[in-house]
Simulated scan of single mutants.
Amino acid sequence: MSHGQQTDSERKPQVTVVVVTYQSRNTIGATLDSLRESCDAGLAVVVVDNASNDGTADFVAAHAPWATLVRGQGNIGFGRGCNRGFDLVATPYVLLLNPDAVIAADALTRLLTFMEQNPQVGICGPAVQEPSGELQPTGALPDPWKIMLRPILPGWAERDMRHVVPGERPQATDWVCGSIMLLRWKMIEEIGRFDPRFFLYFEETDLCRRARRAGWEIWTVGEAVAEHVNAASAKATGAHMMWDTIAEHYFRSRFYYLIKHFGWPAAVTAELGELLLMTVRAAGERLRGRSYKSLGLRLRSPILKLPVFPD
């Protein structure tokens, strides 16, 4: 074999990137551009468009003909969209990447190298930095107690959460954000794909919990750095992610997550207990002459309701 000639196994892609888009025309270009170098080196890219009406699919087809485009007939949500992309995966690893996330070739290589060197790891994620400099969190999985007590004990409820700092050494964790995560396909074959009953939010939380339960490890790899514009529209208006229009999905998914992993009694107790303690806190804030808008916003969001999928 001549110098520089690759074997078939060396040419075979090791990673398939799955990007699920919906109304992503303004951000998907940068995402695809960040993947082009890796794609030239053998990376496989699948874009699943959930029937965007802003021209996302046509833009992807023209801007990145090297990517496989799957045009959906409707908005089936993030998890179901990923599952549809999984149908086209024929590699040992799959990278989930939001259409407003950017990861360079060297960062992806660092993630892949870490997974190759640690076969017990099923999921890993990079340090994810927003343009503002904020870092995305990682840490413990939510449970009924943390959700219920957070209104009055936020420090305790979030005590196991931290930010992944760029450059830090790999660290074990229980959960990484689904905006950018590298999955071992062997793990997916063992524990199953995303639960299709989640429309949006908590689908990756559910996946991480199932992975940990099956004995797979989850790690952060801070030496790999990516960028993500998280909830850009909400940040532009100053609204918190949970209180804008997507609250409809967030709280329904959270309730289903609690039922699935902790049972109906715990899920109902957590939701109603949260409301009770938010009421207590609101009363305390009023006595201090301060407002507590979170209670009113929460009361306008779904309570004890499960996800609903469009036809």
Rank of each mutant, 00 (worst) to 15 (best):
R184N: 02
A270S: 12
V15H: 03
R298N: 12
V70K: 13
I191F: 10
S38R: 11
V268M: 15
I303P: 02
W185P: 00
Q6S: 06
A90H: 11
T68P: 01
A101K: 03
V280W: 07
Q6C: 00
G85Q: 11
W145M: 10
T269S: 14
Q136H: 12
G284E: 09
V15I: 15
A270G: 05
L43D: 10
L272N: 01
S24L: 06
V17S: 01
E203Y: 00
A104Y: 03
V47N: 01
Q120K: 08
A140G: 07
S2P: 09
F309M: 12
M242Q: 13
P302S: 05
G55S: 05
A140T: 09
R80E: 09
G133I: 14
E189Y: 05
N75H: 06
E285R: 12
G133E: 14
K235Y: 12
A30K: 14
G85C: 12
L272Y: 01
D54P: 03
I152E: 01
V47H: 01
W66H: 03
W66L: 02
F199L: 09
W216P: 08
P119K: 13
V164H: 04
R252F: 06
A30V: 10
I218K: 06
N118E: 11
E217H: 09
A267Q: 07
V46R: 04
R159E: 04
N50C: 10
K12A: 12
K293A: 13
V128M: 15
V164S: 04
N230L: 13
M278W: 03
A231T: 10
C124S: 06
Q6W: 03
W264M: 13
Q171W: 04
P99M: 05
E204C: 07
P166Y: 08
V19D: 07
T16A: 08
D206H: 01
D33W: 10
S38D: 15
M242W: 15
E168Y: 00
G215L: 03
H63Q: 14
D195A: 11
L272H: 01
N26T: 08
N98F: 04
I246N: 14
